[in-house]
Design a binder for these strands. Structure first.
Length: 594
RNA sequence: GGUCGCGUAGCUCAGCUGGAUAGAGCACCUGCCUUCUAAGCAGGCGGUCCUAGGUUCGAAUCCUAGCGCGAUCACCA
């Protein structure tokens, strides 16, 4: 567990004192941040120490406090409340800490990438429809986790698996063919992904109509779905695709390229990127091969109809299909192939993170077991970063029912809202149109990302399209605004930034801000361990709140003492850097002015 | 039904590797712009931390059971 410099320092001092008394305390010394209603910056909880010391918790605290004060010149005082020893550090200590932090460029960031390679998968779209709100949470989360790991010193690779083959894209193809006009996205003035999605919807309409017609003729629903001419045609396309029919493959490539063109515009606006794309069309054959291999090794079994299964009953699970009776691949097949390909591509890969919704918890549990059964030692290094769905007030998003919040539309709405609000405040005098639109983009996208990332990933969250996302309180715009505030002060200051630590006397809000700053590296570490951007988001919010209190109570530029001004400038400069880097880990930019 | 996850203020969420009187934001009410940006600050209102047991000096946090909500258990992806 990472600790702040203060905790490490006191840990040593306290242990030395205990050793002196002949006590060997095995566990971690329980330090925590002092609650704000008490004096002090760090608190030692002495309940666990009472027994080994043979005294009451209060006495233990009193004894240790007294001894610490005598032996450590950096401690200014202490107070004891029940079993809590609140330790107050000297101004000198904090001034020196400030100087330390100031001397580090990108404070909190690992100085070298000496931690192992991690692959983070996110997005993983199907190529038959545009990205929606669920993808936004997925992408922001995965991208941010990769950034946090990199910041903490890992080598990282960001990847997506594109589900570019299968019946879904064949449906869009069938509708496009049936339309007969050989349209391109330009003809309808649509983004490529929207265009292909449009045909997917067209297919569904035709399919439903045909099923209804057939049922009107007295045919059962099941049979009608089976015999619907559109569905028959789509299945025919899939078979032709698998047998590498030239025309079908050409159309497939064309349709997918339209989709990619659309996706890349969306990704660009989202500001997420990938180091490498994997395509299901390139991995499903590997999966098939490995499944057959597993069959021959007796790991899997075959039913009479030719389908291949794995029996997971010893793991308390069911039988799972790995290859259909007609020999075609299922979802699991390609995931097996993809995992293997990734570890083969990257011999130094230490582990892999799959950012996928919690509806697939079971699927990944099964996948990892299968990989282990196949004998891959790295199977235990696969981790499913499972996150909760984004629900609408009306319930779950369902593309077929049209209750999907489109990613492009939502981003556009957010930027428009940001623009309206910003113009209303009227602080943009002298800004060029280009700078303004950049600012609106930054605020709108920031608010959206922050909204989706500040919540614990594993929690389900609610999004109400009727209520626009807040721009006040625990939001990105508040943080961005505070950053702009700091920058505005820094622009006015031209003096020296050196200060004499011995001449610094701290105001309470100033001291709190310093304490808050000292936690940044700890938070980064925790976020990297827990794969949780939410920890970073909430930390930055707390830091910024601390800054605003300080700002409101303490004059920064107007103090008469040069050392004090230089110190405060150094302090807020560091706060600005941490805010910028911290928000950067969430993919959110902060402006110089707003 | 089995398995997994969640349940904290009117709403959205922190806190969950056990520690002090459970914290924020939104909403509602009061103050603060001739002083470094009021997207801010200060204060007020608002809680059976789902319920019942258990472990502990100490439980929102850990354990057990129950209730509620959700996901999942396909020759769909």
């Amino acid at each position: 567990m990472t600790r702040t410099p203060l905790e490490s320092l006191l840990d040593q001092s306290v242990r030395a004192l205990l050793t002196e008394k002949g006590i060997n305390f095995g566990g971690e010394l329980p330090f925590q941040r002092t609650r704000k209603e008490f004096q002090g910056e760090v608190t030692l909880v002495t309940f666990p120490l009472a027994k080994p010391m043979g005294v009451s918790p209060e006495q233990a605290a009193e004894t240790l406090g007294k001894a610490l004060l005598e032996t450590n010149g950096l401690i200014a005082g202490y107070n004891v409340v029940k079993g809590f020893l609140n330790i107050e550090m000297s101004n000198r200590y904090w001034a020196d800490q400030m100087a330390n932090m100031a001397s580090i460029l990108d404070y909190g960031k690992a100085t070298s990438k000496d931690k192992p390679l991690v692959m983070v998968e996110y997005s993983s779209p199907n190529t038959n429809k545009p990205l929606h709100l669920g993808h936004l949470r997925n992408n922001f989360l995965g991208w941010s986790v990769a950034e946090i790991l990199a910041f903490a010193g890992h080598k990282t690779k960001k990847v997506q698996i594109i589900n570019d083959r299968g019946i879904h894209i064949c449906k869009s193809m069938q509708a496009w063919i049936a339309d007969g006009r050989e349209l391109s996205p330009e003809d309808l003035g649509m983004k490529g992904d929207k265009f292909v999605g449009h045909f997917y919807v067209e297919f569904d309409k035709a399919f439903k109509r045909e099923v209804a017609d057939l049922m009107a003729k007295g045919i059962s629903e099941e049979k009608a779905k089976e015999d619907s001419p559109s569905m028959v045609a789509a299945r025919d396309i899939l078979i032709k695709w698998e047998s590498e029919d030239k025309d079908i493959r050409a159309l497939w490539s064309k349709m997918n390229s339209w989709v990619y063109e659309g996706f890349s515009k969306t990704y660009k606006r989202m500001e997420v990127d990938f180091d490498r794309n994997y395509y299901e069309s390139e991995t499903y054959l590997i999966g098939k091969e490995k499944v057959l291999d597993g069959l021959s090794r007796g790991i899997f079994y075959q039913q009479e109809d030719g389908s291949i299964w794995v029996d997971l009953e010893t793991y308390g699970m069911d039988q799972k299909l790995l290859l259909r009776s007609d020999g075609t691949a299922v979802y699991m097949t390609q995931d097996i192939g993809t995992a293997i390909l990734r570890f083969e591509d990257n011999p130094s890969l230490a582990y892999q993170i799959y950012t996928v919704g919690n509806e697939q918890d079971y699927h990944f549990k099964v996948l990892f077991i299968i990989l282990e059964l196949l004998g891959y030692s790295w199977a235990k290094d696969c981790y499913h970063l499972s996150y909760g769905m984004v629900d609408l007030p009306s319930g779950k998003m369902k593309s077929r029912e049209g209750t999907v919040v489109d990613a492009d539309d939502l981003m556009e709405d957010m930027v428009t809202t940001a623009q309206e609000k910003t113009e209303e405040l009227g602080k943009l005098e002298g800004m060029s149109a280009e700078e303004k639109s950049e600012l609106f983009e930054l605020i709108g996208l920031g608010a959206l990302k922050y909204f989706l990332l500040k919540v614990d990933p594993k929690k389900r969250m609610l999004f109400d399209p009727e209520e626009s996302i807040d721009l006040q309180g625990n939001t990105a715009p508040f943080i961005q605004y505070s950053h702009a505030r700091i920058k505005s002060i820094l622009k006015r200051y031209e003096g020296a930034k050196d200060f004499d630590s011995s001449k610094i006397s701290l105001e309470e809000s100033e001291r709190q801000l310093l304490v808050e700053l000292s936690y940044f590296p700890v938070v980064v570490d925790e976020a990297a361990t827990a794969y949780s951007p939410a920890l970073v988001a909430n930390y930055i919010y707390g830091l910024v709140k601390g800054f605003n209190q300080f700002y409101q109570q303490v004059p920064i530029l107007k103090d008469g003492n040069g050392d004090t001004v230089a110190f405060r400038i150094t302090l807020i400069e560091k706060v600005a850097e941490v805010v910028k880097n911290g928000m950067g880990l969430l993919g959110i930019s902060v402006p110089e002015r707003m």
